[in-house]
Computed example of a mutant assay.
Amino acid sequence: MLPWVVRRTRLPLLSLRCVHCPSESATTGQGRFRVNANGKLLHVWLLVRCVSCDRTSKLAVYERVPVRSIDPAELDGYHANDAGLVAARLLDPLFARRNRFTLDWRGAWRLDAPPPLFDQAWPVRVEVAFEDPVPVRPDRLIAQALGLSRNEVPRRIKCDIPLRRTTSAAFTFIVMAGD
């Protein structure tokens, strides 16, 4: 069995309309939070920057919540601009839905796979694992890694999930011998 791992190389871009220019891409840059207190209520925002005009916008993490309702360690992470906390918020689908953005994963991930061993006994079983929820189409991933055409993938691959549907969950497949 061959292990393949899909890893994030950087944070993905955000597909988010800029209020200042016609661009629809934003980045978190170094990943910064803004924390503001209004009496006993707290606001926490994740700051994002437009890739075209460099204008900063805010994505609401918490709005008008009592200070005591936030875990003190988490609040310290917001004050320290913790990179792990930035990634956790960006990859949270509820946060994305609430702030009306999607993630653009182009160029933000890589596949770590051993070189294909075509001298092995056929069939070859491959297990694909994901470290982060990177959405990929299995047929494209397999074709790229094995150097096959996408038309050849359905003929040579037996997979436990549909090949043409985007997934970010672990899956396995079997590579059959070529003709």
Rank of each mutant, 00 (worst) to 15 (best):
R156T: 11
C18W: 11
V126T: 09
D119A: 09
R68A: 13
V19Q: 15
D139Q: 11
R17F: 06
P114E: 05
V134T: 09
P3I: 00
C159A: 13
H43G: 05
R164I: 01
F118Y: 15
V48S: 08
F118S: 12
A113F: 06
L47G: 02
W122G: 09
A83V: 03
G39S: 05
A73R: 07
P72Q: 08
D179Y: 07
M176D: 14
E24F: 12
R7M: 01
L91R: 02
G31A: 05
N151D: 10
V6T: 04
W109A: 06
V86W: 04
D54N: 13
F118L: 14
R68C: 07
P93F: 08
L163T: 06
R55Y: 07
W4D: 00
P12F: 04
A96Y: 06
P3G: 05
R150S: 13
V126K: 08
L141R: 09
R165D: 09
G178W: 07
D82T: 07
L46Q: 08
A73W: 05
H79C: 12
C159D: 09
S168V: 01
L111K: 03
V175E: 13
A121L: 07
I70G: 05
E127S: 15
L163N: 05
P93H: 14
D179Q: 12
A83S: 07
D119Q: 12
R32C: 07
S23F: 04
L90F: 00
F173H: 03
V51N: 12
L111R: 05
P154G: 10
F171L: 03
W45R: 05
L117N: 14
N99F: 06
C50V: 06
L14F: 15
F118W: 15
F130E: 00
T166E: 15
R10K: 09
V44W: 08
V136E: 11
S23C: 15
P154H: 14
A96S: 14
F95I: 11
A73Y: 04
G178F: 10
R7L: 01
S57Q: 15
C50A: 13
P116R: 01
F173K: 01
A37V: 06
S57W: 06
V86P: 01
V51H: 12
V126C: 15
S69Y: 08
A73E: 07
E127C: 08
P154C: 06
G29R: 03
I157W: 08
N38Q: 13
L41G: 05
V67C: 09
L11S: 10
R150T: 14
D54F: 08
R34E: 12
R156K: 11
P162R: 13
P115V: 10
F171S: 02
I142F: 08
R10T: 06
L46Y: 14
A88M: 01
P133T: 06
D160I: 02
A143E: 12
C18S: 14
A113H: 02
L146I: 11
L117T: 15
G77R: 04
S69I: 04
C53V: 09
K158P: 01
N81F: 01
L47R: 15
D179A: 13
I142R: 11
Q30G: 08
F33M: 05
I70K: 01
P115E: 13
S23Q: 10
S69L: 04
N81S: 10
G84W: 00
T27F: 03
L16A: 10
L103H: 04
F118T: 11
P138S: 09
V128H: 10
R68M: 05
